[in-house]
Design a protein around this nucleic acid. Structure first.
Length: 348
DNA sequence: ACTCTTCGGCGTCATTTTGT
DNA sequence: ACAAAATGACGCCGAAGAGT
């Protein structure tokens, strides 16, 4: 049984959706693109309100849009079909518009069943060859936002959620700032001073400073804290440069912090900083490799979260664009009807 | 209550894209 | 060219809803 069959029960990947939209964009007018996008949305996004299509728009002739005037076939909801020439010509900025966009051959949405069958035949590598990758959501959305002022930009950095709390005063540079799992912030100055701040408090009140008495010169290879762990005895540990541990006791109002050198095995998932120059034995090399792996996994974990967030934002953007185009399409069809009436009354 | 289905989210791996 | 970031694909899990 194919993995994909199980995987994509009722779901649609963004790649599927956007590729179909890309394809629809390549040979048609904006209205056609809107109709195509709408079709995709209706078919694949359950939970959306099932609005009956106002009209189905198709382009007659393969040369449409390339030199010769485009002949658009508009099928109204009443079943009436209308040939339109040159009415819908405004080139709307594509929802998916990238300078690196390449022509790709993808099975159209109507062939979803066939493509699902053939998916077992085409392995993932081949699919990846066929489907060229598109630029990042951030880039696409930012390009979109430059085209359309209403589209929000994806910020490079989340200033509110991930930024340092305003309550932490500036320390001597360079410092490292870490946030604990309980929301507290630990800032480590170059000289080894540690400041602990509770963002819930009003800054200075919740600020505590520790000095690392056993820290020597900063190790050049030391990196930042990668992990904070809740130990079984209720304390919380934060690993800081120099292979030392800040231990927070789990007591009440006045938490106690200690700087320790870890002697026991690390809890699962703990990543510690290490100086690359101090590695000797194969065991140390293996530990270093493990640390690097854990760090990579952790970074990728966060990146995946962020990517999913961007993807959701991107899809929202696409959906709102579809809504706009639907309205636009409706207006154009109404305009077409009016023009038709005028023409028919003149000929009579 | 139980089962089944659907959906959304997460972690990880592999690969691509991007920045230097 | 290289490392880091971004992203698609996949498998897994839990929640929610529908059907029995």
């Amino acid at each position: 049984m194919s993995k994909c069959v199980k995987k994509y029960h009722g779901k649609i990947t963004v790649r599927q959706m956007t590729m179909e939209m890309v394809e629809s964009q390549q040979d048609g007018s904006a209205a056609e693109s809107a109709a195509e996008s709408d079709a995709v949305r209706m078919q694949n996004l359950p939970g959306q309100s099932q609005i009956p299509p106002i009209a189905q728009v198709s382009v007659a002739g393969s040369s449409a849009g390339r030199g010769s005037p485009a002949v658009t076939l508009v099928q109204l909801a009443s079943g009436q079909t209308v040939h339109v020439q040159g009415v819908i010509q405004a080139t709307q900025p594509s929802v998916i518009q990238s300078p690196q966009m390449q022509a790709v051959q993808v099975a159209p949405a109507a062939d979803a069943d066939e493509s699902a069958e053939s998916e077992g035949v085409i392995d993932s590598q081949k699919r990846r060859e066929i489907l060229s990758r598109r630029p990042s959501y951030r880039k696409i959305l930012n390009e979109l936002s430059s085209d359309a002022p209403g589209v929000p930009k994806i910020e490079e950095e989340k200033s509110e959620e991930e930024g340092a709390p305003s309550g932490i005063p500036a320390m001597g540079v360079p410092t490292s700032l870490y946030q604990t799992s309980t929301g507290q912030y630990i800032a480590i100055a170059q000289g080894g001073a540690i400041q602990i701040s509770n963002p819930a408090s009003d800054g200075v009140q919740g600020l505590q400073t520790l000095t690392m008495t056993n820290s020597g010169a900063p190790q050049p290879g030391a990196t930042i804290v990668q992990y904070a762990a809740q130990t079984p005895d209720g304390t919380q540990q934060f690993f800081v440069p120099g292979s030392q541990v800040v231990v927070q006791a789990a007591t009440g109002d006045m938490p106690a912090y200690q700087i320790r050198t870890p002697t026991t095995a690390l809890p699962q998932g703990v990543v510690m900083a290490a100086s690359p120059g101090t590695l000797h034995s194969p065991q140390q090399l293996a530990e270093e490799a493990t640390r690097k792996r854990e760090l990579r996994l952790m970074k990728n974990r966060e990146a995946a979260k962020e990517c999913r967030r961007r993807k959701k934002e991107y899809i929202k953007c696409l959906e709102s664009r579809v809504a706009v185009l639907e309205v636009q399409n409706k207006k154009l069809i109404e305009e077409l009807e009016t023009l038709k009436d005028i023409c028919s009354s003149k000929t009579d």
